[in-house]
Design a protein around this nucleic acid. Structure first.
Lengths: 110, 110
DNA sequence: CCCTATGCTATGATTCGTCAAGTAGTAGGG
DNA sequence: CCCTACTACTTGACGAATCATAGCATAGGG
């Protein structure tokens, strides 16, 4: 129905980053490469199916890189590519904003 | 299960911004205040129920402001608050990243 | 009068994300 | 050796979120 006659990279970027868990995944991976379950724990609360989907998508877009070290005792490493690492600026902007304006948490006291 | 013992504003910010359409809405509103349908058109492809829901949430968080000008011939204005305008840095970071790394779109020709 | 426009809400359909469990192989404790 | 836990996912069923569409009430143009 939609015809991306001019293709807006900003629009696409937003669409990617607004997918559930994507930003959390990138943020976790900015801390360093890690395996699947470790990443799941770092992200917190994501289920393997969704995480798998997201990683597949992010790998297809060249944001993360998957390296299979061993097949048998399953051992995999996920790490950010250059493009992925550049997302740090986005995360940083979100962090700055969150700290500045999202402080008023739903607290009841000081 | 999870106890947000220290409340992480970054985590919260990510959770907010990853909600579908939120970034698109903010980006549209950065262009200037507008009415409901106008905003829907600017965002493109969002259905009124979702948009309404998001605006309600964004207003509750103090990111957007809603002003009802008339009740009967319905006339409403949505505009960003200070906090909302500050999200421009996030949008800018995403724009920069998208332009730099998302260019290789799945297109076949110019 | 008829059609468009405004700002939303209501309805049923589809898609997305979640949950629980299972697969396969190895390492460690008893 | 046996049992459990860990590794990395996949699968199928379920529920929640989002979708497209229609509709309300009113005002202005033709």
């Amino acid at each position: 129905m939609e015809r991306e006659e001019d293709f807006c990279p900003i629009h696409e970027a937003i669409n990617l980053l607004q997918e559930k868990w994507v930003l959390h995944i990138v943020r976790a991976l900015l801390e360093g490469e890690m395996g699947f379950n470790q990443l799941a724990r770092a992200v917190g609360g994501v289920n393997p199916a969704t995480l798998s989907h997201r990683l597949e998508r992010l790998a297809a877009l060249g944001v993360v890189e998957k390296e299979v070290l061993q097949a048998m005792p399953p051992r995999t490493r996920y790490r950010l590519t250059q493009a992925g690492r550049e997302l740090e600026s986005v995360i940083a902007a979100i962090e700055a904003w969150g700290k500045a304006y999202l402080k008023p948490a739903p607290d009841r006291r000081t």
